[in-house]
């Protein structure tokens, strides 16, 4: 249960960061975001993306344009706002900090199995 909760928390933060990263590359449609996230093995189902996009949009990080579609209803194409761009750069710094923290932590933990192996030997 605790493990699940932590996983959800981690996923949730990274998912938002990834979505902002994907959108920062240019105007994009929700299902293309999903495709990208799926190839990055980050998202399981589409349904979770819509609440996220709506929340980001309402917080002023995203905006969208309606674009006519050949198949089905008009699509919402999302772009980053100025606010979104500044927040994304903040997140970039945070990510560098976090990955440093993880890498540093990992260096310590990577040694542990070796010790264990040595002990078992």
């Amino acid at each position: 249960m605790i493990a699940e909760n932590t996983q959800t928390q981690m996923r949730k933060g990274i998912l938002e960061y990834c979505v902002l990263l994907i959108i920062s590359r240019g105007e994009i449609y929700a299902s293309d975001i999903i495709a990208e996230l799926k190839s990055a093995r980050l998202l399981v189902v589409e349904g979770t993306l819509y609440p996220l996009l709506t929340r980001l949009k309402n917080n002023g990080l995203l905006s969208y344009n309606w674009v006519e579609s050949t198949s089905g209803p008009p699509r919402k194409y999302y772009v980053l706002t100025e606010d979104g761009k500044s927040i994304l750069s903040q997140l970039d710094t945070t990510w560098i900090e976090l990955s440093y923290a993880i890498n540093t932590s990992k260096k310590v933990t990577e040694n542990t199995p070796n010790i264990n192996i040595n002990l078992t030997k």
Binding site: E4, N5, T8, Q9, R11, K12, V44, V45, E46, G47, T48, P51
Partner: peptide
């Protein structure tokens, strides 16, 4: 539904 995910999927992957 599989692709979109059921409500149960939303619950686990969403803000707990």
């Amino acid at each position: 539904i599989e692709q979109m995910g059921s409500v149960k999927d939303f619950e686990t992957s969403e803000e707990a």
